[in-house]
């Protein structure tokens, strides 16, 4: 029970009394109309991405393709593949490291309260709401200087960008884990303590085994956020060879020589990984959203 409160889900029991037929009709009609609205952009991207180059014309934007052709996707993939790979290289460390940090932080903030923790927590949380414009200029300077001082390339590279996502991902992941661990019964912790386990032991043997649902939520959240992010990426990676897919797509869409159906195919390609995550793990995705908003 307690854990469901921490990672909220939409209950499936629907309370309502039977309604007249015409009411149901209006309900379904309205829902269907809205569904069409939400599907509209995907429909356009899809049908035009699937048209052959001969068939592409702006005036026939809404017409179904007469035959399916993957030419546009192949061409878009040819242009975007290196950046797709960059995004993968970015997302893996940025997701895993932040999740680990968030789990440890959340555990301590929830179960090892110390003086000042109640002040520290909102200060930490503020970091997830700030407009990142307010840190960009020093961030660029820092990455350049720190990179030089340490003999690493941080500015302009995927590792540097991953570092940025890790740091700015700490507040949200800490929040989700803290709220989740807050609902782990204190008796479990006490029991561990009586068994002679310390902070680290209780984490390893008691808390971590219970953490899978929270990890799934956090990993999906971070994956989606980092994959889709644009501002840090466009400022920190100038060199196209190092740019993640969002920036490459923006360059492709702004380019004068690339056919617009290739741009549409590219947009779908960039959206594909997060869409797949959504389709297969949508329940957890939703819980992450609600956890971020409903604070416990």
């Amino acid at each position: 029970m307690a854990q469901q409160a921490a990672i909220p889900a939409i209950a499936t029991v629907a309370p309502a009394r039977p309604r007249p037929r015409w009411v149901r009709l209006v309900v379904y009609a309205t829902l269907t109309l809205f569904a069409l609205f939400y599907l509209l952009p995907v429909y356009v991207l899809m049908i035009n991405g699937l048209k052959s180059f001969q068939e592409v014309s702006l005036s026939r934007m809404w017409v179904l393709p007469s035959s399916f052709s993957l030419d546009s996707f192949a061409k878009a993939y040819g242009k975007l593949a290196p950046n797709f790979a960059n995004s993968v290289r970015l997302v893996i460390p940025a997701t895993l490291v932040t999740a680990l940090l968030g789990s440890v932080n959340g555990y301590i903030l929830a179960k090892w309260k110390f003086r000042g923790a109640d002040l520290l927590f909102p200060l930490l949380l503020f970091g997830m709401f700030i407009p990142y414009q307010s840190v960009l200029i020093p961030l660029v300077q820092f990455l350049q200087r720190a990179g030089d001082a340490l003999g690493l390339s941080l500015y302009g590279t995927i590792p540097g960008l991953a570092l940025v996502h890790i740091v700015y991902g700490i507040p949200i992941t800490t929040l989700i884990f803290r709220n989740y661990y807050a609902s782990v019964p204190t008796e479990l912790i006490e029991a561990g303590r009586i068994d002679g386990a310390g902070l680290a032991g209780i984490y390893r043997h008691v808390v971590l085994p219970l953490s899978l649902p929270a990890f799934v939520v956090v990993l999906i959240w971070q994956f989606t956020a980092v994959w889709n992010e644009f501002l840090f990426a466009v400022v920190i990676t100038n060199n196209p060879a190092q740019q993640p897919i969002t920036v490459a797509l923006q360059n492709l869409a702004g380019s004068q020589i690339v056919e617009w159906n290739v741009q549409m195919a590219g947009a779908l390609l960039a959206a594909l990984p997060t869409l797949l995550v959504y389709v297969f793990l949508g329940r957890y995705f939703l819980r992450g959203l609600l956890a971020g908003a409903l604070k416990g």
Binding site: I92, L152, P159, L163
Partner: peptide, 19 residues
């Protein structure tokens, strides 16, 4: 502390150097 953080973050990522 910073270098601790940096090394932690970079453990998981291969370092690419420029030209």
């Amino acid at each position: 502390r910073l270098s601790l953080l940096l090394s932690l973050a970079l453990l998981a990522t291969p370092v690419i150097t420029g030209v």
